[in-house]
Amino acid sequence: MNTSETSLSVVIRERRSVRKYDPDFKISQEEILDILKEAALAPSSSNLQPWKFIVIQDEAAKKELRAIANNQEQVETSSAVIAVLADREMYRNGEKVYRSSFEAGYMDEATMGRMIDNTNKLYPSIPLEMRENIASFDAGLVSMQLMLIAKARGYDTVPMGGFNRQQLIDRFQIDERYMPVLLLSLGKAAVPGHKTTRIPIEELVEFI
């Protein structure tokens, strides 16, 4: 096992859901952007990157958000709360994504054109529920990557699904194109997260 594999294993093993944060510890917008930039390297269907992030740091806004999120303390005491949104209309990203790949030299112009055309034909014809499932799955991938990157930098997180989605949409004026998937508290732990156990993997794996 090389050093990078060892480091990743340590990060995975040490990451825990933290609900008690140091309210005086702040993470800069610049570093949060850097964390999100790395997280957004996560894979996604057709590389359409169907996600958007609202980073909530304002103290008054966090107080309002706490009420929306079932009064969970970490919403108000963490350095930031990141609302992860899934893009129901991810196909609208196609031209930007594939043109960027063409300009970077990762595909030729004919391939770019074909990818754009295929995306614009396929995705709008997919039923909305299926597009929502695709976008939610990809939003989960970017969220997990975000949590591991944060831990590697010495920060702590907890993903939260317990919040009123309609109230979040109304308060932060979220366009109907986007679907709230989860809230993610980011900060410095005041109390370590609880250790947990896992079902033995042998019970959950079948080799064929």
Rank of each mutant, 00 (worst) to 15 (best):
N120H: 11
L146R: 04
K96V: 13
E73C: 01
G94Y: 03
D87Q: 00
P159C: 10
K37F: 12
E202Q: 11
A61Y: 01
I82A: 01
Q29G: 14
M115H: 07
A190S: 15
N2L: 09
V142T: 09
P192G: 05
Y21T: 05
P200E: 07
A60N: 12
T157G: 04
N47I: 11
T197A: 07
I116V: 15
E203V: 00
S143K: 08
V205L: 12
M107I: 15
V55G: 04
L183T: 05
L183S: 04
L148M: 14
Y21A: 04
F53D: 03
F53A: 04
I27M: 12
K96G: 05
P124L: 09
K26W: 07
G187E: 01
K195V: 08
L8I: 12
L168H: 14
R165S: 14
L146N: 05
S44P: 03
A152Q: 12
R131K: 13
I116N: 08
M1C: 07
P124R: 01
L204V: 03
P200K: 08
T196A: 06
V11Q: 09
V10C: 05
K26Y: 04
Q166N: 14
L85P: 02
V205E: 02
E30I: 14
E5S: 14
T3F: 10
V191P: 02
Q57E: 15
M107T: 10
I169A: 13
A80R: 00
P124K: 11
V84C: 00
A69S: 09
S136N: 10
V142N: 10
P124D: 13
T119C: 14
F137P: 06
K151P: 02
V81I: 01
R13K: 14
T157Q: 11
A69M: 05
K121W: 01
I174L: 11
D22C: 09
I149K: 13
T197E: 14
S17E: 09
D117N: 09
I82M: 00
N93W: 00
I56V: 06
E95N: 08
P23M: 01
D22G: 02
I56K: 07
E64Y: 05
R66W: 03
K188G: 05
E59T: 09
I199W: 06
Y98V: 03
S100G: 12
E129Y: 08
E129C: 08
E73P: 00
P23L: 01
E129Q: 13
Q74T: 00
G140E: 09
T111N: 14
R88P: 00
A61Q: 12
V55E: 04
